[in-house]
Amino acid sequence: MLHFTFLGTSSGVPTLTRNVSALAIRNSKNKDWILVDAGEGTQHRIQQAKLSLQNLVAICITHVHGDHCYGLVGLLASAGMNARIAPLTIIAPKEIQQWIEATAQLTDLHLPYSLNFIDVNEAAQILRITDELSIQAHPLSHRVPSFAFSIIVQHTQKKLDTQALIQLGVPKGKAWGDLQQGKDIQFNDQTLKASDFIQTHIQRVHAIVGGDNDQPELLAQSCQDAQLLIHESTYTQAILDKVGSGPMHSSAKMMAEFAQKNNLGNLILTHFSPRHQDQIGQRAIADEVHQYYQGNFYLADDFDQFSLDATGQLSKVKPK
């Protein structure tokens, strides 16, 4: 029900193999998608991932640090040059709106579509973006105000109880079609109410995408009904201990312990320091997670794709 494409998994600066933070999340039932963060170069990654800016319904920016937002204005401009006219929702710190407006004024930028800007501080309640996609923001702990976003997709399926109709002897055809459309019908001198023959099934999945954060426990309550947490794991614990508390990031150990304590079934880690991006560094991150977490987890690479199905099962999608 949710499809994830990692467009950037490096922290701070891009490297030869990883761009800075950006994540595309698509409703697998249609082409609607959401972008969480837009570090420099994100629009190139979007092109390479064959995502259309025409189908982008919302952009969420976790915080104002450049590796999470410097690609935003260029992306907006390109969407306009590609003839986008549909309004676009942006959920972000109010400073992002000020930056966009100042940049537009100073660089003669004119967008042919409107921006529906929502201050992230006002997104504490669930915001419906489309009929099926909703977003909610959760405050985190970082050097500047930082947020996580709940991404929720809910599908309602209505199925006709055909066995009951067969037992009553209601013939297939118009009668069944009317009931399927919610219309009551007359049959054998009695009224058959559509509501008695429609079975409603609700499918809901909930993923949380965190910004930079040194206190994973802030997400404990919001993770109670989440099937997946995507979170930064900038360092191993040993490196974080050497670096100190100044950068205000999480380690692999911190995230693993949090996920285990809160019974999270799925965990994807991203936003790795360049010192952890080679094979040895990634193995050190993975080994640390294995030590403290028994659930299903992945370390994300650029262009990795994952699918979260209606049962909450997470799987990595093989490239075509």
Results as ranks from 00 to 15, higher is better:
L56A: 06
L56N: 07
L56C: 14
V57H: 06
V57C: 15
V57K: 14
V57M: 09
A58D: 03
A58F: 07
A58Q: 05
I59E: 07
I59H: 12
I59P: 04
I59T: 03
I59S: 08
C60M: 14
C60V: 03
T62G: 13
T62I: 05
T62N: 15
H63R: 03
V64Y: 09
V64L: 10
V64T: 15
V64A: 15
V64P: 03
H65Y: 10
H65S: 15
G66I: 05
G66S: 10
G66W: 07
D67L: 01
D67T: 10
H68S: 14
H68K: 07
H68E: 13
H68Y: 02
C69Q: 12
C69H: 09
C69I: 11
C69F: 02
Y70T: 01
G71V: 01
G71M: 08
G71S: 11
L72D: 02
L72K: 00
V73F: 06
V73T: 05
V73R: 00
V73W: 05
L75P: 00
L75W: 03
L75V: 01
L76G: 01
L76H: 03
A77D: 13
S78M: 15
A79M: 09
A79T: 01
G80T: 01
G80H: 00
G80Y: 03
G80W: 08
G80P: 10
M81C: 08
M81V: 04
N82Y: 11
N82L: 15
A83W: 13
R84G: 08
R84Y: 03
R84D: 10
I85P: 00
I85D: 12
I85F: 12
A86Y: 04
A86N: 14
A86L: 10
A86F: 04
A86W: 03
P87M: 09
L88W: 02
L88F: 08
